[in-house]
Design a protein around this nucleic acid. Sequence first.
DNA 1: CGGGTTTGACCTGCGC
DNA 2: GCGCAGGTCAAACCCG
Length: 236
Amino acid sequence: MMSTTSQTSLNHSLFEEQDQIPTQMGFNIPFPSNQAFPPLGCHQSLKSISAVVPSLSSEPTSSAANFAETLFSTAVQRPREDLTSSLVGGGGQLLSLNRSRVNPWAWEEVSDCLMSKRMGGDDNRHLGVSAMKMKKMKGRRKVREPRFCFKTMSDVDVLDDGYKWRKYGQKVVKNTQHPRSYYRCTQDNCRVKKRVERLAEDPRMVITTYEGRHVHSPSNELEDSQSPSELSSFFW
DNA sequence: CGGGTTTGACCTGCGC
DNA sequence: GCGCAGGTCAAACCCG
């Protein structure tokens, strides 16, 4: 049975990473205090978020990917001058959008990713675009995998997102008391990585950064014997 | 014994 | 070129 937390202000954010510390922009989606919350886990959490913002799409979003896409595409369609305006869904649950102008290329990378996905493009194409952009901005910059970050209020550092991770490093980040942990997906041929750290300003918040896209389904989901068609929507 | 974690060393990018 | 900081490696260690 699904467990719930007793926190009254479950403040969940989906945001895009900045160049170094992902703190500049975000979609802040405060949960209603009476909202039941699933066990801490990224896709599980996101499912619950999508459930409280049904007005963003014509039908309830069924996956984290769809939900993220809905959020991003909604923001992308807005003019730049309107970036800090409020986004209020029909239910009024989606409260604010505050996008940073500090790192526009990163934002565009996400946008490109979503556009190519919507148009049936593959990942290589969007990576190529972002690589070109980075090349333009800096003479030599490593091509990065697409990244997504989640800021989650949680007592535990490592959220159960359905995938199996192996820790390969830990580093003390400057000006923070909390170390950053580095994880790799244990699946063969899957090069997805994630970083986990606590927000310096608010140690209750856990920042999880995913880099790359899984080429397989979550291990938990397989064990739960879900249908393959449903599983595919959870790929990042 | 196998798989995961810890942790110091090393590598790399970047600013000065 | 040098130093700093983030990221990764890999040997040692831990645990079931």
